[in-house]
Design a protein around this nucleic acid. Sequence first.
DNA 1: GGGGAATACGAGCAATAGCTCATATTATAG
DNA 2: CTATAATATGAGCTATTGCTCGTATTCCCC
Lengths: 207, 207
Amino acid sequence: MARKPLTKPRKAAAQDRSRATVDALVEATARILVKEGFDKASTNRIAEQAGVSIGSLYQYYPGKEALVAAVIDRHNEEIMRLVLPAFAEIDMLPVEIGVRRLVAVAIEAHRIDPRLHSVLAEQIPRTGRLADVEAFGRQTYALFRTYLAAHSDELRVADLDMAAFVAVTTIEALAHTAVLSSQKMLPDQTVRTLVDETTRLVVGYLT
Amino acid sequence: MARKPLTKPRKAAAQDRSRATVDALVEATARILVKEGFDKASTNRIAEQAGVSIGSLYQYYPGKEALVAAVIDRHNEEIMRLVLPAFAEIDMLPVEIGVRRLVAVAIEAHRIDPRLHSVLAEQIPRTGRLADVEAFGRQTYALFRTYLAAHSDELRVADLDMAAFVAVTTIEALAHTAVLSSQKMLPDQTVRTLVDETTRLVVGYLT
DNA sequence: GGGGAATACGAGCAATAGCTCATATTATAG
DNA sequence: CTATAATATGAGCTATTGCTCGTATTCCCC
């Protein structure tokens, strides 16, 4: 039988010293994931890179999957620190403006750490954290659906759920592909065009 | 120094017997990838599952990455057997009809073997086959761009490259997400709606 | 049917993985 | 200052991984 990979931390850090250890571990995991990929990220390697003994690693995390899950959580929080304010901000604004803002935010979010984002996207299915990440996706989806419902007078769509699915998936995919397919920083000009086009695509569909 | 993962087969099979061996290996790799994921797919396991000795495996493939690459190739060929005829077919048809057909094909392609498609999409970056798969993507992109160019009188877009990027990315993402996010078979009704909506989205943007 | 080429086999080795546990160090409360 | 809890250490065990190589089998052609 396949043992299920545990993804919860073993115990919480209580003192400052241990909190630093935990931070170092998560940080090291992220660094290795980006620079060497999931395969090379062994617990021994992570501990070494973090400057922490392997024993300490296992005091806080039951294994590699849990570390990766921690990295995912951290990254998701960073993204949400961009996304949530954006939704609050556009609340009362018309769809044309609101969508434009969300498109811009989606691109920003992908630019936080494109390499990490990419690796995490690959690794999510195997962390057992699929449920969490789906919940994360659903949250964005729900927020957007709420926004649409509040502006339904501007819309020309029959099914709000379908519309939200189409719009969210499209925005996310365009941002993701554009940012990741260009290794180097996207020039501002291209980003502006991309925002324009994506906005036109989605707004044209919605209204 | 990290050894680069070789992805080319070691030697071609000459007799029927060996061709069967190679087939069994690729098939077993696909099965294990789907059922257990990349991590559990060790060369020993693949050989065992294929009913082939580990020695034979290494006679044809230098390692696991090469097997995965072979699976990717096989899968891509299957997809192209759907996509190429579709492009030929829509050649002279108006954008509204052509896009609809392509959207339908994209969904069909994802329904060939959703689980496999999903796993492969995850594993591509680490197979060293990124270039090949990007070429594959570029081919679709190029075909679509050509189609657009031939129908530019119907279009309202400034930049054909940008338009092709936006359209192809969107269609692929919607098909991918819709098929994969629903574990079970999509009901025909939903597929029809999805095709309608995606077509409206993209055609509205293009024309 | 004899002989060389192609194919198949699998024991087994070196490297590395994940992980434990007995021990040492540091912090904190009384 | 001392006792106890919290934290940190790393040698080292077991299982697995990737892979080789000497040997056995099968095929094919003359």
